[in-house]
C-alpha cells in the first residue's frame, strides 16, 4: 500500500516577534508526515514548540516559513470563505486549557452545537439538542449538563466539553493539544479508549501533543520528540522507547515516573547535557535506521548508526 499522507509538514517555521528586534524561534524548521488513520505523537517539554507546531498547522498562527499540506492542498496562504469552511470542518482541535477555550457566557449546549450551526449539520432545535446530549454522554458527561455554564464544571469536565465540541462536526483529522493532562486518571483511560474507538470506527487521524510520555506511547503509532523548536528524534513508538538514540530522548524517558514502587526505588535518572553534541556543523535530520530519524551532525550520524544497529 502506498503511503497515504493526510498531512505533510515541510520545514515549518514559526517565529514570534518579542519586541526590541528580538524574535523567538518557537518552531524552527520542523518536517514530518502524518499518514491517514495513524496517531502521531508529539512530545517535549513546555517551550519546546510542540503546541506552536499544532497551532500553526491548523492556521491559528500564520507560519513564518515552510509549508503545511492537508490532503495534498496547501493550508496556508489566501483562501476563500468556502475553502476555509471546508477545511475547518475536516480539521479540528482539542485545546490544552479547557477554562480559556470555552466561552463563559454560553451554555454547554450552545458551545458544543456551535460547529453544528456553522456547518449547518442539524435541521431543527430538537435534533440539535439530541445530538449534543449524545456527544455529552460519549465524553462522559450527563445529559442534564447541557443547560449549564462552563464555570459549573471542574477542569476535567470542561475538557470533555471541548472534546465533544471537536467531535461534533465529525472531522477527519484532530489535533489534540494535551487533551488529557487535565483529566483524572480513570477518566484519562476512558477518553483514550474513546479516542481509539473513534479512530477505529471512523478512520480518524490524530496529532497527539502531550508531555505524559506513557500515554503518548500507548496511543501513538509514531512519535516525534521536540526540543527547543526542533524535532530531535522521530521513530515508531516501540522503537523510540526501546532504542532511544538522541541524548535528550534518553533523559526524557528516564524521567517518567512509573506506577511501580520497586522500579522507582532503583531508578537512575539521566540528565541531558546539550554540550555533548558535536558543534562543528549545523545538525540535520538523518535516518539512522529504517524509519528512525535523529537530528545529528555527520560525525554523530556515524556513531548513532552504530548505536542503532547494535540492538
Amino acid at each position: 500500500m502506498a503511503e497515504d499522507k493526510i498531512l505533510e509538514v515541510i520545514n515549518l517555521q514559526k517565529h514570534f516577534d518579542v519586541g526590541r528586534n528580538k524574535t523567538v524561534k518557537a518552531v524552527d524548521g520542523v518536517s514530518f508526515d502524518i499518514l491517514r488513520g495513524e496517531t502521531f505523537g508529539l512530545v517535549g517539554e513546555s517551550g519546546s514548540g510542540k503546541s506552536t507546531t499544532g497551532r500553526t498547522i491548523i492556521r491559528l498562527y500564520n507560519a513564518t516559513g515552510g509549508e503545511v499540506k492537508f490532503n495534498g492542498e496547501d493550508v496556508h496562504g489566501k483562501k476563500s470563505k468556502e475553502e476555509l469552511l471546508k477545511f475547518n470542518r475536516k480539521m479540528q482541535m482539542i485545546f490544552q486549557d479547557p477554562s480559556s477555550s470555552l466561552n463563559p457566557r454560553m451554555t454547554v449546549l450552545d458551545i458544543v452545537a456551535e460547529g453544528l450551526d456553522v456547518h449547518k449539520l442539524v435541521k431543527n432545535d430538537k435534533e440539535r439538542k439530541e445530538r449534543v446530549e449524545e456527544l455529552l454522554e460519549v465524553v462522559g458527561l450527563n445529559r442534564e449538563h447541557a443547560t449549564r455554564f462552563p464555570h459549573e464544571f471542574s477542569g476535567g469536565q470542561r475538557q470533555r466539553i471541548g472534546i465533544a465540541r471537536a467531535l461534533a462536526v465529525e472531522p477527519e483529522f484532530i489535533i489534540a493539544d494535551e487533551p488529557i493532562s487535565a483529566l483524572d486518571v480513570s477518566i484519562q483511560a476512558q477518553v483514550v479508549n474513546l479516542l481509539k474507538k473513534l479512530q477505529r470506527d471512523r478512520g480518524l487521524t490524530y496529532l497527539f501533543i502531550a508531555h505524559d510520555l506513557s500515554m503518548v506511547k500507548y496511543i501513538s503509532d509514531r512519535i516525534g520528540v521536540m526540543y527547543l523548536g526542533n524535532l530531535v528524534e522521530l521513530a515508531d513508538s516501540e522503537e523510540l522507547y526501546n532504542n532511544p538514540i538522541h541524548p535528550y530522548t534518553k533523559s526524557l524517558l528516564s524521567a517518567i515516573p512509573l506506577p511501580d514502587p520497586e522500579y522507582e526505588r532503583n531508578r537512575k535518572r539521566i540528565t541531558y547535557d546539550p554540550t555533548v553534541h558535536d558543534s562543528s556543523e549545523e545538525p540535520e535530520f538523518r535516518e539512522v535506521s529504517p524509519r528512525h530519524w535523529v537530528r545529528c551532525t555527520t560525525k554523530e550520524f556515524e556513531q548513532y548508526k552504530i548505536e542503532a544497529a547494535k540492538k
Partner: peptide, 15 residues
C-alpha cells in the same frame, strides 16, 4: 487505567 511503557494494544481498564 494507566498504561505502562510495555503495555500493548489492549484497551485500558477504564472505570
Amino acid at each position: 487505567s494507566m498504561p505502562t511503557l510495555d503495555s500493548t494494544d489492549e484497551e485500558l481498564y477504564a472505570i
